[in-house]
């Protein structure tokens, strides 16, 4: 009974946080603002839209400066959410991907001897310097248990196969399992549903990509992540466009599956499928906007912030590369607000 009581999330614990988030939501980039950024005459006008939304000034129109501002925004968002969230498991779920990304990069660098610096992101639960020291000294007592459990398996896999893709699959599976366990222990059906939908998206992308690369079902079995709404057993067959469409037909990813099937038929692109997967996630998250107060508001805002950072990166990189505005707009995900 005591454990059950611990898992009850009281929406009134989120009154202050939710109201503050609602006030902040009005500064998020709407679709209209994103399109204005794409269509602005100069880069200064593009940046002006961001400053109107409370972003700091971007010193120059270089990707290095933009990346620095994006990293600053991400760290500020997480710092604020960590101070607001009555339960630290909410930000933790969103931080896990940085931990596992760094772990993957460092393990690959151990195997190849290449310097990983440019790829590392110091944004996870474990500070980067600490993570590097843990791996160097083989001391994992301060590492989250689920991560520590896959380090030796990852090293072993890499030394046996020399295939970095297999390491990615192995660590992704561990990451989604930890995300799902954390969300379930937290007791939010909304957060669990979000992770399950993410897993479905990952499985759909893996099935389509691996089939397109002509890889066999053995590697697909290794790549599929359990825990989604769609059973991975149904994907453990010879992947065909019809199978992809039928397996995901009744899920929120039916449009993305249609795009994936089109890729396999040689009619579409992977980018369209990826975009449809991300849009399905945003559609799911938008339910949080209609919750007056509760954990959902924080979860929706965190995901919306991450999606906004991606949108800004796409827009500015596209503009710096001289892409026409229509092409950049096509690549943009649906906006949360």
């Amino acid at each position: 009974m005591r454990n059950l009581a611990k898992n009850i999330i009281k929406d009134t614990d989120y009154l202050y946080a939710s109201a503050r988030i609602k006030a902040l939501e009005k500064n998020l980039l709407t679709r209209e603002r994103m399109e204005r950024m794409c269509e602005a005459r100069t880069m200064e006008d593009t940046f002006k839209v961001l400053t109107e939304c409370g972003w700091p000034e971007i010193p120059s129109a270089s990707m290095a400066d933009v990346e620095q501002i994006l990293a600053q925004r991400r760290s500020e968002t997480f710092a604020m959410l960590r101070s607001l969230a009555p339960d630290q498991r909410i930000p933790a779920v969103f931080l896990m991907k940085y931990d596992y990304h760094n772990l993957k990069t460092l393990l690959k660098s151990e195997a190849t001897g290449e310097k990983p610096d440019a790829l590392l992101i110091d944004a996870g639960r474990v500070p980067l310097r600490q993570l590097m020291a843990m791996l160097r000294e083989n001391s994992f007592s301060d590492m989250p248990a689920a991560m520590a459990a896959v380090v030796s398996e990852g090293r072993d896999l890499l030394s046996r196969t020399r295939d970095p893709q297999l390491l990615d699959f192995s660590l992704d599976r561990a990451m989604y399992a930890e995300m799902l366990d954390t969300a379930e222990a937290f007791g939010s059906g909304f957060l669990t549903g979000y992770i399950r939908l993410m897993i479905d998206g990952v499985n759909l992308r893996s099935a389509v990509r691996l089939r397109r690369m002509g890889k066999g079902s053995e590697i697909l079995r290794f790549a599929l992540v359990p825990g989604g709404n769609v059973s991975i057993m149904s994907l453990m067959h010879d992947i065909s466009p019809d199978l992809i469409e039928s397996v995901f037909a009744s899920s929120s990813l039916s449009a993305a599956a249609g795009a994936g099937a089109a890729v396999l038929r040689g009619e579409g692109t992977l980018a369209i499928m990826d975009l449809a997967c991300d849009d399905a996630l945003i559609r799911y998250l938008k339910r949080a906007k209609y919750v007056a107060f509760g954990a959902e508001t924080l979860i929706g805002y965190l995901a919306a912030q991450e999606s906004e950072l991606t949108a800004v990166r796409i827009i500015i990189a596209g503009r710096l590369a001289g892409l026409p505005s229509e092409m950049i707009i096509e690549r943009l995900r649906d906006a949360y607000v």
């Binding site: 009154l15 202050y16 939710s18 109201a19 503050r20 988030i21 609602k22 006030a23």
Partner: peptide, 8 residues
């Protein structure tokens, strides 16, 4: 509590 959130 909610008012304090907005006012912040």
């Amino acid at each position: 509590e909610a008012a304090a959130g907005v006012l912040t």
